[in-house]
Design a binder for these strands. Structure first.
Lengths: 207, 207
DNA sequence: TAGATTGTTAATCGATTAACAATC
DNA sequence: TAGATTGTTAATCGATTAACAATC
């Protein structure tokens, strides 16, 4: 089949995990892999991997499996990370700083290009070569740098307001590190990272 | 019904999100809430919330809904965060440092009590009052401090080895920030945080 | 060829939703 | 009481898995 819209979101969510495993295999010089090998590495069934990929096209060969480099490239294109997305970070505290310093974005399709904070003492500070801007500059900077993707790393009290400003400035995908559900228009993507949610999920099973 | 084992993992995974919303409502002085209000805040159906909670007991009253403080306390107990879990952090780079500085753990049931790194120049350094220990001290420290929960904040090349050492030292829940799937025995919980996975999930829907 | 593995179909399994009696 | 909302059942919907013909 392939390529139509109507792909289940849960399938889309697994593609980045497949891509990550394929990158690793590339680094390990594997030329070919199979749905079985991939499934074993990721702890999911080979049938699920074949089914997931079948939504987007036919990428393998009977008998030999998948060419790692080829499948990697195909998934990069499907996820639109065959390019570099400029990103904004809002919040220059400890977390914002760590995000800006992280070297794992660029090899996977993203680059932090601007950082904002509303505390006067943080404005002007330089983080990994990027000068922290005041919130007043948000719209102007984002439009100048064509930023559609942003990360929120501010205290929870400020998160909704920041989200509103980002949407206003044209951002269409937000990764929110503040521990709060934010509301955005239906055409804006939101994802959440809250370590405590994961920790509490695990402690359910402990003792 | 309530309280048996056989709760779907997907249901367990939503409880921390419910708990987070209830904390916020507590802070907002809401005394009562309903499955409708909660669902609206979280963007899920009221039926799902009632169904999820029904796995654990009966917490509401017809006509009036749920007492926020009571439901909050019940979910805290279900998730075993009606106590404080001591945690270890492995990796004292930018990310590890940000994790140790994060003040959001303690109010939600967790406290970082030790930090490890294998780089000699980082050992001995103090982060938020905690002295960085060498990896050789891992087993000894974890057992002395009764640590069952750990976070991995090391480069991906080191993550599997660190995970092995943590398991060896008695850790039963691991939150892995390294962008790699790690293997652990079946009785050890693992959760992953990889911001790029979330970003790539969103860029699928962009442009 | 013989062995392996794909892509796909149909069956199974599980999760979500709608509806409503019970009752505060 | 009248209105609201629960907990639960049954129906619906969707996701996963098993199986296999096709074929490299």
């Amino acid at each position: 089949m392939g390529n139509s819209r109507n792909i289940p979101d849960i399938v889309v969510g697994r593609l980045p995990v497949y891509l990550r495993a394929l990158s690793l295999m590339l680094a390990e010089q594997c030329e070919y892999t199979s749905s079985h090998e991939l499934g074993e590495r990721l702890g999911i069934s080979s049938a699920q991997i074949r089914k997931d990929l079948s939504h987007f096209g036919e990428f393998g060969k009977q008998g030999t499996g998948y060419n790692v480099a080829f499948l990697h490239e195909q998934i990069r294109q499907i996820l639109h990370v065959d390019r570099e997305w400029p990103m904004a970070v809002v919040g220059a505290g400890d977390l914002g700083r760590a995000i800006v310093h992280y070297r794992g974005f660029v090899p996977r399709g993203f680059r932090v290009v601007c950082v904002f904070d509303n505390k006067p003492e943080r404005v002007g500070e330089e983080i990994a070569g990027i000068v922290v801007q005041p919130m007043e500059k948000l719209a102007e900077e984002l439009s100048a740098k064509n930023v559609q993707v942003a990360m929120i790393a501010v205290p929870l009290e400020a998160a909704q307001d920041v989200a509103d400003q980002l949407v206003q400035a044209g951002v269409r995908a937000i990764l929110n590190y503040a521990p709060i559900n934010i509301s955005v228009p239906p055409d804006v993507q939101v994802q959440y990272i809250d370590p405590v949610v994961h920790l509490q999920h695990m402690t359910f099973y402990l003792k």
